[in-house]
Design a protein around this nucleic acid. Structure first.
Length: 850
RNA sequence: GCCCUCGUGGUGAAAUUGGUAGACACAAAGGACUUAAAAUCCUUGCCAUUUAUGGAGUGCCAGUUCGAGUCUGGCCGAGGGCACCA
């Protein structure tokens, strides 16, 4: 029999779709719109299995929605600025732009081979001037709205390469390339005022009903809202300061106050800049601060000053003031009041420095001698040992009432604090969007006028020099703005800025004047379904949400506050790892086995290979499978089929060559079956009512099941349904089936299988002389009804058998049947029936007396 | 340390939302077809003497219920996020 030539047929349909612009999208107000978006890829060279999974999930949904009558937009683009381009440029002596463009063309070609229903006319690339000029305009817009500012901030500085390092480039406190010990250095940098919208971003999460709770919780924790109050502590000492402000969530424990600690970066530290002992202490802090180990161990160190702080509620009580490594300058006011009895961290510190403390909260049922020793008590209870606070219920009443008292006495103010920090957007790199700012001779900030945009990156660049390449490029740096000589800002924007609005650009990819066109975004936005990896749960998704708030701020015409209506986070693609005894990694291609247990190296069978656990595919562990090779070997339909088959999309999936081959065989088998059915359609004429009804029922039930699975992303179950359908069809055509029903129902079945395996289905439909773009078939509700059901018979709660009975059977009739059924009836043992639970169309449970 | 998610055969997993546990697939074993192999098809979750029959069974222990993979409480284990956030 004829083999299914996937290479030829997949190519045929891919060019058909391309020629006919089958997936081109326009505004059409007569139809409901559906904007389906998967996170766009970074053009790193080739697509990987994670992309295959991500884009297949989105493609199945897009094709489905489109057949259901939605006006679908399904675009694709490239997140094409970023560090790897610079690294590659150094290694291969290739300009970042060329490297990126080469990768884009390779990957675009690969994506096309997957048969994705993408509207390529909307393709965008964030490194193109067409894209980033609008981003520069947005930057200026936000600047004018007061949402962008400049301040000094610490960076990781590599003294050998003279460059700023991203956190992930710092390994064990050393620069990844030079190996130099990384220093903290203060630089002037640009910030987006994301914390201005802390409350909005937090509250907005409640409206996102179809986001995974996990993601919402992560964002909630990241924003970190806490309720408390700020308190001014009077200070006594030989320095010209008289108070230090602290933020606390537990003002109710103020009578347990036993020390005051401030960050080493606190303004107070300036008075100690000539103190050698303090300098040494500060160095110690920066060292322990960088290694993760020390944070995990929670080693607390302090530097005692000669200052004393007064308890605002009890002027007689004075406590020491310390600098401490565990106090962060960028949270609250960089100072904390220490209450060791009710905060473990404070307790560790107090024990280490032998600071006396008092217990002021006791569990409700504890007596007055309750004393904290080694474990801080942070639970509920009531206040004691605290004069006029005594008896307040902890936590709610005590905190609220204490704040009231503090406010009345003008000692403190209620305050809400957020963990969320402003977004530092400056990067000292070449391959990013230039910041449209310049500085005059006096260092004043000058906004680049719109007519001078875009500020293009210089083509000529030396990436092998030390330092920031743009900063070294004097020719580019020097400019004149409105006749004045200026120096350009040489930082570029964090690439997260690029991806914070790309979904808007897809709506109007060719709009010249502005990043988007209002009419178009009002039609398409928000994204109806966003699909991507959970690794972007916080930053990318939060930044995108912020960007919408920033655009709508002081703007009547922009009302989209939440860009992504629904979010789906897919799991990763995993594979076993292979290594030799020296922990050298090998790719699956280099390894062989005969028994499935013992593995050895293909090149040298003497070398034994150890199989490690299945882990997310990564280049470093060499456990990747090349999608293009899989498509070459098995075809796109088979790859799509497999990547959805084994696990629910939100969970990790294991790549298995066996599974891949099985999917390939399914496609081949399906083609053989199609040929049989086609022949049968040619021959059959009249059929039996019985067989025809069976087919109609199966078809309608299948559609019904798929509707539900598709809407819930149960794509692995859909694959199971497809297997079942194959086996059903191969049986039904052996029966006496009519030509008319076979043709009609088979077409429906083909149509509903098409989102997963579009190439072969298109070919099948065409061979039946049918339009390849079918509407999603409607369900005939009558055909969903069943006449006969398997009724479960339980005795004393245990299943004793099933009876095939007519639907809606009455209890009486069923009991008569049970009495006639010897196998089941013998279980009754002539015992008295105590009670009967009869659940219609489900089961009957007969309880017997003992 | 805090927060979240998840524990079902040898493996990946289904389960109409409290009502037949293990659909569908992978692997392994056995069988059929074949001169043989490949391909294809069939059978097999576990224990007890069999394709008939009985029993146990969804991490562990309790509870609610006629009935629990599903609900409640406690414990154990795995994965993920944040990490001195005052």
């Amino acid at each position: 029999m004829e083999r299914y030539n996937f290479k030829q047929i997949e190519k045929k349909w891919q060019s058909f779709w391309e020629k006919n612009k089958s997936f081109k999208s326009h505004i059409d107000t007569t139809k409901p719109k559906f904007y389906c978006l998967e996170m766009f890829p970074y053009p790193s060279g080739k697509i990987h299995m994670g992309h295959v999974r991500n884009y297949t999930i989105g493609d199945v949904l897009s094709r489905y929605k489109s057949m259901r009558g939605f006006n679908v937009m399904h675009p694709m683009g490239w997140d094409s600025f970023g560090m790897p381009a610079e690294n590659a440029a150094r290694e291969n002596n290739l300009h970042p732009k060329e490297w990126t463009e080469k990768n884009v063309s390779v990957m675009k070609n690969q994506l096309k081979k997957l048969g994705l229903s993408i509207d390529w006319d909307r393709e965008i690339s964030t490194c193109s001037e067409d894209y980033y000029k609008h981003q520069q305009l947005f930057f200026i817009e936000l600047y004018k709205k007061g949402l962008v500012y400049r301040k000094e901030n610490y960076v990781n500085w590599d003294p050998i390469d003279e460059t700023v390092l991203a956190n992930e480039q710092v390994i064990d406190g050393k620069g990844w390339r030079s190996g130099a010990v990384v220093q903290r250095k203060k630089l002037n940098q640009w910030f987006f005022n994301i914390s201005k919208f802390s409350d909005e971003l937090l509250n907005g999460l409640d409206k996102l009903k179809t986001w995974p709770n996990k993601v919402k919780t992560m964002q909630k924790n990241w924003i970190g809202k806490s309720f408390g109050c700020e308190i001014n502590f009077k200070i006594k000492g030989d320095l010209p300061i008289d108070k230090i402000k602290c933020f606390t969530t537990r003002p109710d424990t103020l009578f347990g106050f036993s020390f005051l600690a401030v960050s080493v970066d606190h303004p107070l530290s300036e008075f100690f800049s000539n103190d050698l002992a303090f300098k040494k202490f500060k160095d110690e802090c920066s060292k322990t601060g960088t290694t993760e180990e020390s944070i995990a161990l929670g080693q607390k160190i302090g530097f005692k000053t000669n200052l004393e702080a007064f308890n605002p509620l009890n002027e007689k009580q004075k406590v020491p003031v310390y600098f401490a490594n565990f106090v962060l300058m960028d949270y609250g006011f960089g100072a904390v009041f220490g209450c060791p009895a009710h905060d473990q961290r404070d307790l560790d510190f107090a024990i280490k420095y032998k600071i006396p403390f008092k217990t002021v909260v006791k569990p409700v049922d504890a007596d007055k001698n309750f004393t904290v020793k080694e474990n801080a008590y942070t639970g509920p209870g009531e206040i004691f040992n605290s004069e006029f606070l005594n008896g307040f219920k902890v936590p709610n009443e005590s905190i609220i009432k204490t704040i009231e008292i503090l406010e009345k006495k003008k000692l403190g103010l209620q305050k809400i604090n957020f963990r969320l920090k402003d977004w530092g957007i400056s990067r000292q790199r070449y391959w990013g969007c230039p910041i449209p700012i310049a500085y005059d001779k006096d260092g004043n900030v000058i906004i680049v006028p719109e007519k001078d945009l875009p500020i293009k990156l210089p083509q000529k660049i030396n990436l092998n020099e030390k330092g920031n390449p743009l900063d070294k490029n004097i020719e580019w740096k020097k400019t004149t703005i409105n006749g004045k000589e200026c120096l350009r800002e040489t930082d570029t924007l964090d690439t997260f800025v690029d991806s914070s609005w790309y979904f808007l650009r897809f709506c109007s990819p060719n709009n010249k004047e502005y990043g988007f066109n209002n009419e178009e975004i009002n039609y398409w936005m928000p994204v109806d379904q966003y699909i991507g990896g959970v690794e972007h749960a916080i930053l990318h998704l939060l930044y995108s949400r912020f960007f919408m708030h920033a655009l709508s701020f002081k703007n009547e015409n922009f009302k989209i506050l939440e860009p992504f209506e629904s979010l789906f986070t897919q799991g990763m693609v995993c594979h076993e790892t292979f290594s030799d005894k020296n922990k050298k990694w090998f790719s699956p291609d280099e390894v062989e086995t005969k028994d499935g247990k013992n593995f050895y190296l293909k090149e040298d069978p003497e070398i034994k290979i150890f199989v490690g656990p299945s882990e997310s595919m990564s280049k470093s562990k060499r456990n990747t499978i090349d999608p293009e090779r899989m498509i070459e070997n098995y075809g796109a339909d088979a790859v799509r089929f497999f990547i959805l088959s084994d696990s629910p999309p939100e969970k990790d999936v294991q790549w298995s060559e066996q599974g891949m081959i099985a999917s390939y065989r399914f496609i081949q088998k399906f083609w053989q079956l199609h040929n049989k059915i086609q022949k049968k359609i040619g021959i059959a004429s009249e059929g039996s009512v019985e067989a025809d009804t069976e087919l109609k029922k199966y078809t309608n039930q299948l559609i019904n099941k798929l509707n539900s699975h598709l809407s819930k992303f149960n794509y692995n179950v859909i694959i199971a349904n497809m297997h079942e359908t194959y086996s059903f069809l191969s049986k039904i055509i052996e029966k006496n089936i009519s030509r008319k029903e076979l043709l009609e129902n088979y077409k429906k079945i083909l149509t509903v299988l098409s989102p997963v395996i579009p190439h072969i289905i298109s070919e099948c439909l065409e061979s039946l002389k049918t339009n390849v773009f079918q509407n999603w078939p409607k369900i005939d509700q009558k055909m969903l009804e069943v006449e006969k059901i398997h009724f479960v018979i339980q005795i004393n709660g245990k299943k004793k058998g099933t009876l095939e009975v007519l639907k809606d059977i009455e209890e009486k009739t069923l009991m008569e049947m049970i009495k006639k059924n010897v196998k089941i009836y013998k279980n009754l043992n002539n015992k008295k029936i105590k009670k009967i639970f009869f659940i219609k169309n489900r089961l009957i449970n007969i309880l017997l007396n003992d």
